[in-house]
């Protein structure tokens, strides 16, 4: 009886064996069309020669990468020095994205904790409220933010009316403006995974720690944070990565002097500067950076899980 069932099971999987390759086809198609092909295309473009006003000439060239890292003077005939302009843009992007991630964590953690500690029937309402802004297009929201933050906008009016400041603050076209935009855009990406992690947290662990003489801050650092660490890591990735490549907030709230990588790349493909190989090269460098960050985080996560099991 048992033997019959087992051989029946084998027969079933054998019967599907020839089709198994075909059954994986949709997955490979999606992966290929959505992930591999575009990245491959960009990789190839980054090694081609630029055509004036967009497009490429199919001729191998390292010029895009060379232009990113080295300065050869206006006519390209001087001995190469390091091109700081683009590295600076990258540095600013990393710095802004890191700051936005920390800010989101700082505000997102108490928010997620608050939601997770509400009675079960109220939590869905709070989560829904957090996601409400996402029903509106990001462009619209960023433009609205520009309106709120501008020199004669509601925020400055309010601060002046309260009497905190006498002269309007200049927020638009500064790094602060970009930072506010990034923070606002990606905060829910921090709150939601944190909420999911804290909701699964066993709160009797906090009671046990308090019972064992732990003061509140020790309960947070020694018990709660280690337990919800996967949620913290997920939230940080979800905020850091899109912040790094973001171009709406830097464009609309930062202006020309506060350029980030996203805007730089955007300009190569859509703007008048039109240098496709250079845009592709910048994308590849950005991708490499992001993958490096993810790999470090993933390795740390794996070590964590290995320790827990």
């Amino acid at each position: 009886m048992a033997g019959g069932a087992a051989s029946g099971g084998n027969a079933t999987s054998d019967a599907y064996a020839p089709a198994r390759g075909w059954l994986l086809l949709p997955a490979w198609l999606v992966l290929g069309i959505v992930v591999l092909a575009p990245i491959g295309l960009m990789l190839i473009y980054s090694f081609l020669t630029k055509e004036f006003r967009g497009g490429v000439i199919w001729e191998f060239s390292l010029e895009a990468y060379d232009q990113f890292f080295f300065d050869r003077g206006l006519f390209g005939d001087e001995s190469p020095t390091i091109q700081w302009a683009y590295i600076q843009i990258f540095w600013r992007s990393i710095w802004q994205a890191t700051l936005a991630t920390l800010l989101c964590l700082l505000i997102g953690f108490p928010t997620a904790y608050f939601i997770a500690t509400r009675p079960a029937n109220q939590r869905t309402i709070w989560v829904f409220l957090i996601t409400i802004p996402y029903w509106v297009n990001l462009l619209i929201r960023t433009v609205s933010m520009r309106f709120i933050l501008r020199d004669q906008g509601p925020l400055n009016d309010l601060l002046q009316w309260v009497g905190v400041i006498s002269e309007p603050l200049t927020i638009i076209n500064t790094n602060l403006g970009v930072q506010i935009g990034l923070f606002y855009s990606y905060l829910p990406f921090m709150v939601l995974p944190l909420y999911a992690a804290i909701e699964r947290y066993n709160f009797s662990l906090s009671e046990a720690a308090a019972d064992l003489y732990a003061p509140r801050h020790k309960i947070l650092t020694r018990i709660v944070l280690p337990a919800v660490k996967p949620g913290v890591i997920a939230g940080c990735i979800l905020v850091f990565v899109p912040s790094l490549g973001s171009f709406l907030a830097p464009d609309l709230l930062g202006g020309a002097r506060n350029f980030m990588i996203g805007s730089l790349i955007d300009e190569q493909f859509r703007g008048s500067a039109g240098n496709w190989p250079f845009g592709a090269a910048a994308s590849m460098i950005l991708l490499t950076l992001v993958l490096l960050v993810l790999m470090v985080l993933a390795r740390q996560q794996a070590r964590l899980e290995k320790g827990a099991s």
Binding site: L205, E207, I223, A227, G307, A308
Partner: peptide, 11 residues
């Protein structure tokens, strides 16, 4: 306290 579900710190 010895808790009903033990509440041992998993990490």
């Amino acid at each position: 306290t010895v808790f009903q579900n033990y509440a041992l710190f998993p990490t």
